[in-house]
Structures are given as C-alpha cells and as structure tokens.
Amino acid sequence: MADATATLRVFRGDAETGKAVDYEVPLTPGMVVLDAIHSIQANQSPDLAVRWNCKAAKCGSCSAEVNGRPKLMCKTRMDSLPPDQPITVFPIKTFPVIKDLVTDVSWNYEVNKKIPAFKPKPNAEWKMYQRDVDRGQEFRKCIECFLCQNVCHVLRDHDKKQDFGGPRFFVRTAALEMHPLDSRNRIPLLREQLGIGYCNITKCCTEVCPEDIHITDNAIIPLKERVVDQFYDPLTMIVRKIFPAK
C-alpha cells in the first residue's frame, strides 16, 4: 500500500485551449479525489486551479466530472474507482471553463436573483410544526454544488440558459412555495421566466444530488402540477375569464 500510486488525468487549460495531463499520485488509505488534486498542487503543479472549501460535502464547491461522472471531489473515494486505469478529472461541462477545474458559474447567481425572496403572511403567528417544515427542509439541504444544473440536458445539451432556470432553482422555488408562512405566488415566474415546462422529468438531477434531495419527485413535479392548476385547469380558466385578476 505504501508505494501504491494512481494516475490522475486532469484537464489543464482555459476557456480557449486545454489538454489532459497525467500525474502520478501516491495513495493513502481512505483518500478522496480532492486529496489527490491537493497532492498535485503541493508537489507537482502549484498553479493547478480548483475550487474547494469545507472538504466535507457541506459547501458544494469542488464539483467536477470524475471518470465522466459528476461528483463532489471531496466525497469521491479513490478506492471506489478502477485502480488499473487513469482517473480522469475534468471541469463540469455545462459552464464555461475559467481555468483547469474551475468554471464560471456566475449564471446561476443571476438566475437566483429572479426569484422573489420569502415574504411572510401578514400577522403571521410564527408557529410551525415539524410536519409542515419537513418538505421545505429537504430542499434547504441544497449546498449549491450545481451538479444538477451540470447534468440537466436542457442546460447541458440544449444550452437553454436564457429560458430555463434549472433544477437548483426549482428546488429553491419549491422551498419558498412550500414554506407554511410564505405569502407570494411564484408560479407565473416558474412558467414564464424559469421555463419549468422544458423539464421532461428524466431525473438526471435527482441521480447526481449529493444531498439526496428528491429534486424531480418532491420539487419539480409538484411545481409543474401547480403551474397546470393555475394556468391550464379548465374550471379555473373559466373563473378567471369571468373574474379577471385585479
């Protein structure tokens, strides 16, 4: 074990150009991919760019594609990967590369600004029961690693960043919409600006969520139902015709 090494094949480059570079890294027990990247920085290539913070899967900074799979590097054990071939570590594909493993995720912060914040009901009593907050708490586990955004084919393959908010922001909207004391209606926003209709519930986002949030079943599908209820329910449509919204 003491002499065992692994080969990491890491993307090195920037927005214009880049290539995969191989590094030999000594293995230690329980090592994760982020440890291996740090070892490269310390011993071989100090300018290797990577984002990380907590190293404990709580901050969502170290997202990358490891052997082609979207992962948090701090949570991906080296011993979970095939030992006999190079481990590829590439930046998440949906966002533009800045350098090496660091991508420009600023688009997400712009989408986030579109979502109106929590606004309590007037004269709220501030009593909430655990069963009422359970749903919201699931969504609020989100650590904004953006892996769900990375794998969503509407963003990854079709690049609908203009028209579509992506799973992360459906999760945030769901937390707000299902907050027992919130007073706002974000359903028109979901339909018109966040483009929830583009999602065809392939559940790719749910599969990669490191927090095990049931993004599709618990957030997106209920929100889609609310959109349908508000905009396409025949009875509501008639009512709305007769009594237009003020």
Binding site: D14, P46, D47, L48, A49, V50, I98, K99, V102
Partner: peptide
C-alpha cells in the same frame, strides 16, 4: 509563483 495570473492557486 509561476504560470499565468488566472486562478493561480500557488500565487
């Protein structure tokens, strides 16, 4: 430090 000024963690 060596390399470019872009996201240069060693620098």
């Amino acid at each position: 430090a060596s390399g470019s000024h872009v996201y240069n963690t060693g620098w």
